[in-house]
Design a protein around this nucleic acid. Structure first.
Lengths: 265, 265
DNA sequence: CGCGTTCTTGAGGATTGTCAATGGAAGTGG
DNA sequence: CCACTTCCATTGACAATCCTCAAGAACGCG
């Protein structure tokens, strides 16, 4: 349960029991509860700590001066804010909650230490950062090329797959505590049009969404209308190349903080 | 001239003469010319080498099965493909040329060696990767929230600023060898509408674009209509925190290949 | 139970897309 | 060096998608 983030990272790299333990310890230090619709980090802030989401949903977003808002990513339980802390001076976007959340915070130093001592964790965190970049590219494609129906369907597919990967979805069922307004900000559509699009998806029996729970009766059908190809999530790489990390470790190339850690403060 | 990529990385981290020299040597090894409208790397490939663009323009793009295409980023002279090579098994997008280009290729091993021996270079390359992620976020915002006029203007602003940063633009003038169709694929608009949008920008005297050369008479005016805020490009951080890298190096936290290097092959 | 938030619906309009054709520039081959 | 081809920019007319405004219904929280 409190291990979501371990499951999350294990999607991305094989971890040793010691890695897992270190991760759990690190994530149990500074716990914090944040209410719904609050900011965790704000654009312009100097990043201080890395946030791990233990429960609840949050999002990365960016605003234009005139009030328009674009969601850039969703954080579901187990997700990590990425490693910007180490390398960029100033947040170029904000992170805000959607539901109440509990987060663990790791300071620069703590994280640097963790990464220096645990090669695989370090690699996993960096790899996770690159996967997030891949997701961002897919969002760009989604907004640029897909129409409203495909766009909404695609986002639902992504969230479902990501939740399933950390065992928060199964049998087509999962929690989806976001509002239609959130969906609108994420897809670049108006709330009204999102509403109509969802109705279309419902009437085609591609999904049922009531309150905060979502049911996808036929994932493949939804994926087909969304033109969804999960490759960009880079799940299941570990299975394909079972010893990639081991070999890397043997070369002494993983871990050791390295470029992971320049505390630019 | 052949130093564009050095100038590029110096935007992002302070380099020592030794760093610069090593970078030049590494980038002078495997040179390759690629014609216009060809692929450098294709989606699904296993990445082998990192590409440095020495001259010419290229782009990152992704396609949907039915033929729709979305540009995800432009590569201008001096740009690096990012460090996906090290951590992801399979390319989730393609990289193709726009004009004829000359590139330098660095193998995994070569790059790992370079990064292990040169702390600052390693940090610079990772930081550049994070800056690219920031740009991708801004593109998402651009596609999701801005209308056609703002969208095109914003992209022009970005390219102009990036070119100026490597001294390929000055006095409002620069080369801009992309077609309106490219612009359309980048902005998620139809080519016809891009054309009309450019005319609008021209008639407002916000830009002049003839053939492959662009003139921006009043950058601030263009930036204002684009709602362009250059913070996301993370230029000029070095000036603000002059010794960030030095301090990082002193902590022994930079360089040393680290997670930079797991050759996942 | 009441109030605020979220969802839903309708009507009309704006932005942007599609189709199709023309003009012009640039590049190629004879 | 010219004719030809090809690619690219441009235009017009019409259509579709999606947006805005505005109001009412349902849901959920305190």
């Amino acid at each position: 349960m409190s291990d979501v983030f371990v499951r999350k990272l294990e999607q991305v790299a094989r971890l040793s029991p010691a890695d897992r333990k270190a991760l759990r310890v690190a994530a149990s230090g500074r716990l914090r509860s944040v209410g719904a619709r609050e900011d965790v980090v704000r654009e312009g802030d100097r990043p201080r700590a890395m946030t791990v989401f233990l429960s609840g949903w949050a999002c990365r977003y960016k605003m234009i001066e005139d009030g328009r808002r674009q969601l850039l990513a969703f954080f579901v339980p187990g997700d990590f804010c990425d490693l910007n802390i180490f390398l960029l001076d100033e947040m170029d976007h904000s992170i805000g909650t959607i539901t109440p959340v509990t987060v663990a915070e790791m300071s620069r130093e703590q994280l640097a230490g963790l990464m220096a001592r645990h090669h695989r964790l370090s690699a996993a965190l960096w790899r996770d950062t690159l996967v997030k970049a891949s997701i961002q590219r897919e969002w760009t494609l989604n907004l640029g090329q897909r129409n409203a129906l495909e766009r909404v369907a695609h986002l639902v597919c992504e969230l479902y797959v990501r939740l399933r990967a950390v065992r928060l979805a199964d049998d087509g069922l999962c929690e989806m505590p976001i509002t239609q307004a959130d969906l609108a900000d994420a897809t670049g559509l108006s709330p009204v049009h999102v509403n109509r699009t969802l109705q279309e998806l419902r009437h085609s029996n591609l999904l049922a969404w009531k309150g905060k729970s979502l049911y996808v009766p036929d994932f493949d059908a939804l994926a087909a209308t969304a033109l969804f190809n999960p490759a960009y999530l880079h799940l299941g790489q570990i299975g394909h190349h079972p010893d990639a990390d081991d070999r890397a470790a043997a070369h002494g190339l993983t871990g050791r903080a390295g470029p992971a850690a320049p505390p630019a403060i």
